[in-house]
Structures are given as C-alpha cells and as structure tokens.
Amino acid sequence: MTMLVKDPGTRIDYEFDWGAAYPAGQAIVESDWTVAPDEAGGIAVAATAHDLLCATAALTGGIVGRVYRVTNRVTLSDGQIDERSMSLRVEER
C-alpha cells in the first residue's frame, strides 16, 4: 500500500490508474471512494470522477498527525469488482 502525505488545508486530486491491471476491453463502469477512519474533521471525499481506465477523488481536510486509509472500489464492465487503497498521513507543510 502506498503512503502519501497530505496537508490538512489542501484540496487535491488522487488517482488510481486501473488500465494496466486488466485485459484490453475492460472498463470502469462504477467507482466508489471511502476513507477510514470516518471522523469529524478527518479527510473527506469532496468530489469523484472516473473514465474507462482511471478513477479520481478530490480529498480535503484531515487531522494533523493522523493516518487515513483511502480506498477506491471499482466495478468493471464484465462485473468484476476490485479495490485498491493508499494511506495518507496528514502533516502541515
């Protein structure tokens, strides 16, 4: 799992590129983002988007010193479901 650093005052896009993981012809038809822990003042998903191969989420907030797990769960055009996660540590930068 990837560990990244996020400033609590930023709103920034994070993306997973699913294209290289699946055979040609597979496409993302649904994408859902979650953050754990889900807490007041924690990292929040402000917006999401996806195309056929990539899923993106704009993340805001976070409590300094905390580590959050951000997970993207996708459904592919053939019905397969997969997910990837990253860890975000919140620090003033």
Results as ranks from 00 to 15, higher is better:
residue 89 R to D: 05
residue 87 S to T: 10
residue 56 T to L: 10
residue 90 V to Q: 02
residue 53 L to N: 12
residue 88 L to N: 00
residue 10 T to P: 00
residue 51 D to K: 01
residue 31 S to E: 03
residue 7 D to I: 04
residue 73 R to L: 06
residue 70 V to G: 06
residue 59 L to C: 07
residue 75 T to M: 09
residue 45 V to G: 03
residue 89 R to N: 07
residue 28 I to D: 00
residue 41 G to P: 09
residue 75 T to P: 05
residue 92 E to R: 15
residue 87 S to I: 08
residue 57 A to Q: 01
residue 76 L to S: 00
residue 83 E to D: 11
residue 40 A to G: 12
residue 64 V to M: 02
residue 35 V to L: 08
residue 6 K to V: 05
residue 52 L to K: 01
residue 41 G to R: 05
residue 79 G to R: 01
residue 82 D to L: 03
residue 32 D to F: 10
residue 27 A to N: 08
residue 43 I to Y: 04
residue 2 T to E: 15
residue 30 E to G: 11
residue 9 G to I: 09
residue 81 I to P: 01
residue 28 I to W: 00
residue 52 L to N: 05
residue 66 R to M: 05
residue 71 T to M: 11
residue 9 G to L: 14
residue 68 Y to E: 00
residue 8 P to R: 07
residue 88 L to C: 07
residue 19 G to C: 13
residue 19 G to M: 10
residue 34 T to C: 12
residue 37 P to I: 06
residue 88 L to T: 00
residue 86 M to K: 11
residue 16 F to H: 12
residue 88 L to Q: 01
residue 15 E to M: 15
residue 14 Y to L: 14
residue 40 A to F: 14
residue 10 T to R: 03
residue 45 V to L: 07
residue 2 T to N: 15
residue 53 L to K: 11
residue 27 A to W: 00
residue 64 V to R: 05
residue 64 V to F: 06
residue 56 T to C: 11
residue 29 V to A: 04
residue 48 T to R: 06
residue 83 E to W: 09
residue 85 S to A: 14
residue 18 W to A: 04
residue 32 D to E: 12
residue 12 I to Q: 14
residue 48 T to Q: 08
residue 11 R to P: 02
residue 22 Y to I: 05
residue 11 R to N: 08
residue 74 V to E: 00
residue 81 I to H: 03
residue 45 V to F: 07
residue 71 T to R: 10
residue 78 D to H: 00
residue 8 P to K: 05
residue 49 A to L: 12
residue 63 I to V: 11
residue 15 E to R: 15
residue 14 Y to F: 15
residue 88 L to R: 01
residue 79 G to T: 04
residue 8 P to T: 03
residue 82 D to I: 02
residue 26 Q to F: 14
residue 59 L to A: 03
residue 78 D to G: 02
residue 49 A to Q: 11
residue 88 L to W: 02
residue 74 V to C: 06
residue 5 V to T: 13
residue 37 P to L: 06
residue 84 R to N: 10
residue 79 G to P: 07
residue 40 A to W: 11
residue 59 L to H: 00
residue 60 T to D: 09
residue 24 A to N: 10
residue 78 D to A: 06
residue 42 G to R: 00
residue 46 A to Y: 06
residue 73 R to C: 05
residue 34 T to E: 09
residue 10 T to V: 04
residue 68 Y to W: 02
residue 89 R to K: 10
residue 50 H to L: 04
residue 29 V to Q: 02
residue 14 Y to S: 11
residue 71 T to D: 09
residue 32 D to A: 12
residue 90 V to G: 01
residue 83 E to I: 03
residue 6 K to Q: 09
residue 88 L to M: 08
residue 93 R to M: 08
residue 3 M to G: 12
residue 33 W to E: 01
residue 79 G to C: 08
residue 42 G to S: 03
residue 42 G to W: 01
residue 20 A to F: 15
